[in-house]
Amino acid sequence: MMTSTPQSTETTKPTLAVWKFASCDGCQLTLLDCEDHLLDVIGRIDIAYFPEASSAMVAGPYDVSLVEGSITTLSDAERIAEIRRQSKVLITIGACATAGGIQALRNGRDISEFVGIVYAHPEFISTLDTSTPIADHVEVDFELRGCPIDPGQLIETIAAHLAGRPARIPTTSVCVECKARANPCIMVAAGTPCLGPVTMGGCGALCPAYGRGCYGCFGPMEQPNTASLVRWFGQLGLGDREIARAFRSFNGWAEPFRAAADSIETNGIGS
């Protein structure tokens, strides 16, 4: 549409905007990867603002905003506040937006030292000391986990919104998905450390299906018992440092994983 008037095309269709903050774009790409469903999405929704996909940029307000990425600069903190004002429903997508992402490893460290090492001209860099999830800055209506998010869960979230029902996103462990696809447990059967028993499902137990321990991409499950898993990792022969590092990854700033890693680094893995 060659107009910038919001919702001027088909007024019955809700408008969707997709926003990027500090992130790798992978979660936005997941929307484009929903190939089988993409035409259905466009049939039901006006994509009003999605620079990754279209140069057409319709001004707000928007019915639904999908927000990728974490807040790492002052200007981003201001931008997300404006996006919140322009959005009826704000859904965060991915580990960066929901937990601060891998870049939250800088939190609690000396940011000026990092900037000095990484950039040839540190004086050009204006950044916050922390990488924080969107929900630390504005009210979030729904969080979709994952690094990256799962296409099926994204479609479910959009379909649920269109149907006016809650999205069905299970908060149980990766183990539930592992057993449903008849994977043998790699921790029990091979001694491979796996974060699956404390990580929320959503990936379909992708890594364990290929013999790799879960990396925790979907963040902490409901009521995760990290202390018990940490003790078991110790019995499998892992050292404090390895275990702490396992928790400090994409969702390392999510409170239960952060607390687990902090506790190991302060007190060791315990008995």
Binding site: T172, S173, C175, N225
Partner: peptide, 14 residues
């Protein structure tokens, strides 16, 4: 038991 139990559901699934 709950100090050890992960509530992961494996026991029920197997």
């Amino acid at each position: 038991v709950a100090e050890r139990c992960l509530a992961c559901g494996n026991c029920t699934l197997v």
